[in-house]
Design a binder for these strands. Sequence first.
DNA 1: TTGCTCCTCACGTCACGTGAGGTGGC
DNA 2: TTGCTCCTCACGTCACGTGAGGTGGC
Lengths: 270, 270
Amino acid sequence: MQAELTIGDFSRITHLSIKTLRHYHRVGLLEPAEVNPDSGYRYYTVAQVPVAQTIRRFRDLDMPVDEVRAVLKAPDGSARDALIAAHLDRMQTQLAQTQSAVESLRALLTETTGAAVKIERRTLAPTAALTITATLERSELVDWWAGAMAELPDRLAQTGLERNGAPGGIFANSLFTDDQGEATVFLPVAAPTQPVGTGLGRARIASVPGTEVALARLDGSHRDVDRVYAALGSYVAELGLDGSGPVREYYLATPANPDEWRTEICWPIG
Amino acid sequence: MQAELTIGDFSRITHLSIKTLRHYHRVGLLEPAEVNPDSGYRYYTVAQVPVAQTIRRFRDLDMPVDEVRAVLKAPDGSARDALIAAHLDRMQTQLAQTQSAVESLRALLTETTGAAVKIERRTLAPTAALTITATLERSELVDWWAGAMAELPDRLAQTGLERNGAPGGIFANSLFTDDQGEATVFLPVAAPTQPVGTGLGRARIASVPGTEVALARLDGSHRDVDRVYAALGSYVAELGLDGSGPVREYYLATPANPDEWRTEICWPIG
DNA sequence: TTGCTCCTCACGTCACGTGAGGTGGC
DNA sequence: TTGCTCCTCACGTCACGTGAGGTGGC
């Protein structure tokens, strides 16, 4: 025997509000067992309680409704587990980001004058390089960067070429102004004396152009990289220089501990 | 000399997207230093860069725009610090909730059959009690509960009355169905032989009515309290009982470690 | 019969993002 | 002059919440 529960009963049992239950009906996430065609009254059964609980748990973790639906409809356990694992991963990332945002805020508040960023001018020579390029959303940038940076040394070994300097990245302005654009990471190499074959996957041999830049070094993690960008951008603007080219970064040291990273941030000048 | 920056320049320097900058202008969070009245072009100055950075930091922490505005306009450092501290507190709470939601999900997934909840029937006798009652939003409930529970013993000492049983709480259905309603916490006392004076603040002497209930014990934190509610509600519904009264809880033990709490959850029956 | 529960529908919220259609500045 | 940057305006997104106005069921 299926006990018929009104929406109010079901709400009390599941701790999902009535408004929320109606919403979940509208979007097809949790359909009442029965709807009276005359009155429109929704009726649920006790068998639906565990489903509602599962939904609540996932929504508490901010899993999007569409994804919760996918989890509930997943054909088998492994598909389900994969979706859940993916979401827990995202949660993990988000927790780390929040943690880092808190630290960043603390730094901003405790800092008395704003540690001066030392800016120098430098002329970067053009070079050949092993490159990976993609057009992507700003939000994908960090993950993409890590993957591409990890791939480059393996590809380099395939080419048999000599490495010729610190790895770098080039980032289109639109990545910042419009939240999407082209990014490149590269490993400088001595110019190849003969053509390099295929089989390098997404990696390519290309030339990285020379340019004059305003440059500042960032010691530590990229948590506060925006402060360096701000210093450089302000410097270039105050001098009335044309800084319209894409920004470039050189990764002098990237050990496991991000606090020990050393990076050069380069803002191109005219 | 104030360097005039176009919205694109300013976007690159601050890492706020152009759309976001326009939005912040619309809502008055960050106004351009100048707007060309003919073209509508926005112009910013380098002096605005630090302000933009501060905004970005706070928004990264999900501080609502209205609050960021309040922080920026705070007349003095202490008002500002108070707003920031309040927000960091909320962040802390939220991190804890996320943590607990993850654990709760893990529990739901690893649990094989769903630990059976033992349900018994009991008749609760009416009693006099020292009570604190409020109408509140569901989201305020936990904080309010902690404050009121902490206050009750002090108030009891003021009355000179004898405690007569475990503290409890009574929660209106609308708290769950409609996200707001009346909540009461109480400390049972022997019926006072003479009127109790005023000066008890928000606490009152009142009578807690008797009722018959379906009851289950929750050992551990209230993280998974909804599972007990679900078991009781399903039980009552399946037996076709009228369970429309407000839910009641008794706090048998609330030591510092929430995993050692013991609570009786009572679903009233007709 | 009363009043409590339930219903729909249209709109609001929050912090932007999207996209059409158009104009200004070097 | 071209095309790149900038503009407005209306609407969309996400997960509901609000509120008006009305009806069903015990």
